[in-house]
Nucleic acid binder design. Sequence first.
DNA 1: CAAAAAGTTTACGTTTACGTAAACGGAATA
DNA 2: TATTCCGTTTACGTAAACGTAAACTTTTTG
Lengths: 131, 131
Amino acid sequence: MPATHYRISELASEFDITPRTIRFYEEKGLLNPERDGQTRLFRPADRVRLALILRGKRCGLSLDESREIIEMYEPGQSNVEQLHSLLDKVRERRDVLTAQLADIKDMMQELDDVERRCRRSLAALEEDNHP
Amino acid sequence: MPATHYRISELASEFDITPRTIRFYEEKGLLNPERDGQTRLFRPADRVRLALILRGKRCGLSLDESREIIEMYEPGQSNVEQLHSLLDKVRERRDVLTAQLADIKDMMQELDDVERRCRRSLAALEEDNHP
DNA sequence: CAAAAAGTTTACGTTTACGTAAACGGAATA
DNA sequence: TATTCCGTTTACGTAAACGTAAACTTTTTG
């Protein structure tokens, strides 16, 4: 039987963050642990949400932006209007991600350039020392 | 003869930021405009740097991180040691960008998923209205 | 059973990246 | 000439995302 819950320090060390951070995310409504008395018990769903938040951070998303995305994954009951609004949000997000992809590829190209020039300079210096 | 300098409000409106932002970047040492009396005169080099800063922001970089990257592009005189340290930085940055690429692709996949489910729900609702 | 370890709440502190307002100086325009 | 539109400096304000410390329970362990 797999562990069905986690304590705060377990999640903290697994994701290499502090308990304070996790409490802060809860305070912000991003996580909803159950309680055993005072102690928080996190379910797998919250673990997943935490992973999504941290992935968001790696991409430069704010907590609110991550929340928006996470809420997209969790439909809830939705009427036609809500579904259309959701589609709009999906499009917006995808546009941002597409721009980000382009920016990242550009940066990588430039880093390649820097590396090439760097290696050439090193080769030149080597050449000077061993004529 | 192309314009060889820009005033603060020109750059601000071109990049859709406020003059305050530009002054802040200067204060942080990210931009080095010349002066005509009190008035700042930005050269093309500073315009490029500004574009790089803003691209960095789109990718979630802090100003300090953007500064680091920009400084990589501007070699300056470098000895063997500095060149190796530069290569290290390039590698680090590339690793971050690589992880970001993976994260972004994952998010896009998930957005595709959301969109598909969304369209199916809409189709189902349509079906209900026109049996 | 006593001490250490891990949990809690409350609350103030910190850094980043600007916003906003005050108070002022030239230049262009009605 | 008066007003308006840039521009400037100085300075305090703010939101986000936690860090840190105090003061206190609860659990675990030697």
